[in-house]
Write a protein that binds this DNA or RNA. Structure first.
Lengths: 126, 126
DNA sequence: AACTTGTATTATAATATATAATACAAAGGA
DNA sequence: TCCTTTGTATTATATATTATAATACAAGTT
């Protein structure tokens, strides 16, 4: 699993790891039931501390994206299709929409942008 | 200006202030050219330090949402309608869409949610 | 028995966040 | 002119967050 970590960003490393795993799940490169790298392996290949990866896994586990225990390692959760966006994500979305509106992006254009992003989630050969 | 600050959140106070001002601008309760409260007044009425408000203003200024100097105070910028979303907002949007997709929210439903949020930005009597 | 797994613990360092007190430069009002 | 107000700067302090490091543990597999 190849992570692109940028230590110069204000986004903490463990959050960047968490985010990219979510992108991976949504894009299909990480499938439900699939085994994630061990915290040690991912830490080594990413050049970060084991506990930093663990912190990302803890967060993903708490949010329901993965399961992790000592016997089976970490695996992508089979989504139960809650069908609702988290309150946190919804308030973040509201803020982004505000920024878009102030930037002068009309509603239709924003929706089109969402459509494109939704489709571009799928993994493409690179 | 009434701010709702939650000190128990992981979002820093200055970021909460910045976010709510952006929501205010998008919603129309803060109009272009309108004067913002002074850093001291907003700090007093919100129960936070002057420099915390100043940090929010600095950020808003840097992002182009407001202008602020020693002579005219802080005022809402007349948007130049860049017409494009910031790179930061776009990557955040991509992440939220990923979360929505994993949660089993179909594309059409997500777009409808965006539509509603877009419209609900406008201030309503309360 | 040896190894791997996520997790826990303890320590340390660096950075971010928030407060506090004070001061400054530039503008406006009395 | 004097006083006030404005955002901003400076310095200090305290706390929280983030990241690393070195060990260790419990539960499973090989």
């Amino acid at each position: 699993m190849l992570l692109r970590l940028d230590f110069s960003l204000d986004t903490p490393i463990y959050m960047q790891i968490r985010n990219q795993i979510i992108l991976g799940i949504a894009g299909g490169s990480l499938k439900p039931g699939e085994r994630l790298p061990t915290v040690r392996a991912l830490a080594d290949e990413s050049g970060v501390n084991m506990m930093t990866v663990n912190k990302a896994y803890q967060l993903l586990k708490q949010e329901g994206y993965i399961t992790a225990d000592r016997r089976s390692g970490a695996t992508v959760t089979d989504p139960e299709s809650r069908g609702v966006l988290s309150a946190k994500a919804e308030s973040e979305l509201k803020l982004i929409i505000s920024e878009a509106k102030i930037a002068g992006i009309p509603e239709e254009e924003f929706l089109q942008m969402c459509k494109s992003l939704y489709h571009d989630l799928e993994v493409r050969p690179c």
